[in-house]
Design a protein around this nucleic acid. Structure first.
Lengths: 187, 187
DNA sequence: GTCTATACGCGGATAGAC
DNA sequence: GTCTATCCGCGTATAGAC
């Protein structure tokens, strides 16, 4: 792994752990084993490096979700797989955790990966919900896009509750509750 | 309003806007129109001031929610009122926004207000759900605590989606979806 | 490409005068 | 109680040598 690559990976890790405001170029360089000069050679500065790192993180997340949602099983099974997917809950969502940072939201290049990820995710989940309705698995008459948004939000909010509590149970409860509501829509 | 009070209020505002890491004592002092000396006279430092401010914010939020949940109306109507309560969505939740900050979560005095707020909220919503089940408004056989967790998470996640998108619609979609699922449980 | 040197202001706090 | 002075290290970046 060359220096540029190590810088990106280190930035991804630190951004996940400490957020954008909490991540200093120095810390990234140290973790990457690269010097000042190296970093400022490959990137114009902190924001530039963060944009690259965030975009990569977002792409990875999207690929992971797509694997689940396009996998085998009925629509309901795939939605369940998305909700119950194993997650490192107490670390927070590597994408969603940045939504509350004003510096991220203010920089279009930094916000774009977030917007694209959730936009895509919501659309993709809505497709699966609609699929389930056509197949008669899920009751019709409920807006697929709204249900999809609720599912994504439950996951993102689950992270918030779990980190507030200091343990992962609230996440499991929230996704379990969403699942129960979804299942009720099936009968 | 005396200096101490202005410091607390200014800290509440800045913590809401910029988070804990993003809020400097200097900025708080400036907004409060107070000097260094004043702040360090009333508080031992940044963390102490933030603890006071966060606790107050949490208390206010709790009072607001309780007013809705103990108000008039059927259980389902009160749950709906909680979900559809007018919120300044793009500003984020003044309590939940801190859950992803490592410095907040690492300090028990800072995390406590978050934990207590969500713990209480989930319990309170679960009571209302159970009430609705006893009254025959909501189908029994679904865990009230899980449904409550899902509702709280939907709201918290809604903030994340809205801020990621740069506009409030995803929040409305998410709460609308949760409401649709909840309503499906009624029939 | 990477290193070292250097810069400047801010973050967070202490000290002592008034 | 509040003010001003002062502190030290970090955040973020530039400059120029190798």
């Amino acid at each position: 792994m060359d220096a540029r690559e190590r810088l990106v990976v280190s930035a991804q890790e630190l951004l996940h752990e400490r957020g954008y405001v909490g991540t200093s170029p120095r810390a990234v360089q140290e973790r990457a084993g690269a010097g000042q000069g190296s970093m400022y050679h490959h990137f114009t500065g902190k924001a530039d490096l963060a944009r690259t790192a965030l975009r990569r993180t977002a792409d990875t997340e999207r690929a992971g979700a797509e694997a689940l949602l396009s996998g085998p099983g009925t629509a309901l099974e795939r939605l369940t797989a998305y909700l119950l997917r194993p997650r490192d809950v107490l670390r927070g969502c590597p994408v969603g955790r940045h939504a509350l940072d004003p510096d991220v939201v203010a920089d279009p290049g930094l916000r774009a990966p977030l917007e694209e990820t959730f936009d895509w995710l919501q659309r993709r989940l809505a497709e699966v919900v609609a699929e389930g309705q056509r197949a008669g698995e899920l009751r019709a008459g409920v807006d697929p896009a709204a249900v999809a948004a609720a599912l994504v939000a439950t996951v993102q909010g689950g992270y918030v509750l779990a980190r507030s509590a200091g343990h992962p149970e609230p996440f499991a409860q929230a996704t379990g509750g969403a699942l129960a509501l979804l299942t009720a829509l099936a009968r």
